[in-house]
Write a protein that binds this DNA or RNA. Structure first.
Lengths: 319, 319
DNA sequence: CATCGAGCATAAGTTCAGCTTAGGCATGAA
DNA sequence: TTCATGCCTAAGCTGAACTTATGCTCGATG
């Protein structure tokens, strides 16, 4: 019988690229990972990886074995979720990952709801970039995470992670001065065009927010000159207010904005989602977190829980 | 992550009933099995088994975990099959189980074909009662097996074993004297009724052949008085020829019959199948065995491989 | 080109999970 | 009652899987 622990290592190798990275992620030595993969390969009777320069890459047989590993591990996750459901009550630690702007908006409200309803639950929040969430979930460092993606930056399909949508909100252009008056039906190119030569404020390099900014500007027909790289939207607003450049913020961040900035709604959306290991959606603690996050989003959209009111007031599209 | 080895033990416990039986089947001590199941239960956080007298029975949570174990192990079997397919050539040991009458008819022909086509394959044949095949496959003592079931004795559905049909053949009533002349459309009750008071020759108690005989007679309206219990159909024919009673044989056995017996075709069928671990159907050695068994069956039906001829000559229904 | 760091593999030593042995208790049959 | 069966726990032992140490190759860099 194939050892699932070794299949797990092979899957991590496929995702992370090098044995050293797998070892670091799982707090092993590279030697241990190499040895275990060697045993797996011997058991398999087929070459699963081959050296390529100073790295290793998976053979076709190795990649197809990873697909089986995905299926097996997903089913195990389902079993774990069912066992957790069979236990009476929801409790124990719940490791929650969040992108920064989720951290001070959705998460606190969700946690208040969550801990009140399930006092035995011990939520542990950890800020993490969306791009690293998948790794964190697979490695067990996280159980659930708030993630987002943007138009122009599609989330890469990942069979090891399931997601449920939470919120879709428009992005806003932040500037100090208004461009010439525009109607509500303007295109992205028309809205961003006036700032083609302006300095830009984007999220830090390597993040999805950064990629979104660059590609939105490219779609508008220019390459942005990026001057500032900050992830915190309040800082983006503050920098824009002092004339340091133009930037993007999601609608969620517009409420806290300083005076002196002009906000222009863009035909460009950010989708927030809750992610968890594939198969884990039925885990009671995760289901409870999803419910609490949904409730938190509903509250944020307006004073009342009424969906129509909220939609009118906030303009957020609930999904 | 749940340990699949422990899930495997839980599944065996579900199938075999006692920890001692699991230990014996897997050549462990009962202590080892008990300890591992204890660890699994602790990890699960839910009671998986509870003592009932001096045995243990699975709780609902335990049984649902077994369902997950089935799914996981099936997927692992699929992975193994795919790896075997990725290796070049078919070789190595292949443990074949067979019911006795398959052993001297289908199996030799199939093996001749198989070893000629795949010289590196080392087939190992083992006679085994169909009722124990499932255990043997799961424990890895067998890779593939010839099994059969009868009308009135439906094979219990088993998610851990896949089967492909091989042959469906009518059963014959064996007697020394013919009953009053009957037409070809007679019912089972009319055909068996004349022998309600006769002594019967059946397969040994506890086998599917025995159950088939009893239930067929019951369906015909009487309880058979069983005098002889032998599994070998040639012996059944020989006993019937000496007037020791009436019995059942499959069509396959009628060719070798001694003179002095009357064979009456019954509206009662035996289905021969090839069984293997769920998910293992794509394993090249198993696929090759299935193909060889099919070929052997085709040959047996007549001198030519032509299906129509064979059907006319032998009356076997190919499926 | 020489040098250096990154990445993987192997050898050897170490540790702990998981096995066996031993023994005890409860159950149910003789 | 006595005995066999089945399960559990304690204690000791062994090997699988880890770490440490080392070497080798590749590719970047001055």
């Amino acid at each position: 019988m194939l050892d699932v622990r070794r299949l797990y290592l092979l899957r991590e190798l496929d995702r992370r690229g090098t044995i050293a990275a797998v070892a670091e992620a799982l707090t092993f030595t590279a030697s241990a990972v190499s040895q275990q993969l060697g045993v797996l390969e011997r058991e398999a009777g087929v070459a699963l990886l081959e050296r390529s320069g100073r790295r290793v890459v998976l053979t076709p047989a190795g990649r197809s074995l990873v697909a089986h590993a995905d299926a097996v591990l997903q089913r195990l996750e389902l079993a774990v979720a069912e066992l957790a459901g069979a236990r009476d009550g929801i409790g124990g630690p719940l490791r929650i990952g969040t992108f920064p702007s989720g951290g001070h908006s959705i998460v606190p409200a969700a946690l208040a709801e969550l801990t009140q309803r399930h006092p035995a639950l011990e939520p542990m929040v950890q800020e993490i970039d969306s791009a690293r969430v998948s790794d964190g979930l697979r490695a067990g460092e996280l159980d659930v995470a708030l993630v987002h993606d943007y138009d122009f930056v599609p989330a890469s399909p990942d069979t090891t992670v399931d997601e449920v949508p939470l919120l879709e909100e428009p992005m806003y252009l932040v500037t100090r001065t208004a461009a010439k008056n525009t109607g509500p039906s303007d295109t992205l190119a028309e809205l961003l065009g006036p700032y083609a030569e302006a300095p830009w404020i984007t999220a830090r390099d390597g993040t999805t927010g950064h990629a979104m900014a660059v590609r939105a500007c490219q779609a508008a027909g220019f390459q942005p000159r990026i001057r500032h790289q900050v992830n915190d939207f309040r800082t983006v607003l503050a920098l824009a207010a002092t004339g340091q450049g133009a930037g993007f913020v999601p609608e969620m961040a517009t409420a806290q904005g300083p005076s002196g900035v002009v906000l222009t709604k863009l035909p460009l959306f950010r989708r927030s989602k809750v992610a968890f290991r594939a198969g884990g959606g039925t885990h009671p603690a995760i289901a409870a977190f999803v419910a609490a996050a949904r409730a938190a989003v509903s509250c944020m959209r307006g004073p009342g829980p009424d969906e129509k009111t909220a939609t009118r007031q906030g303009g957020l599209r609930n999904r």
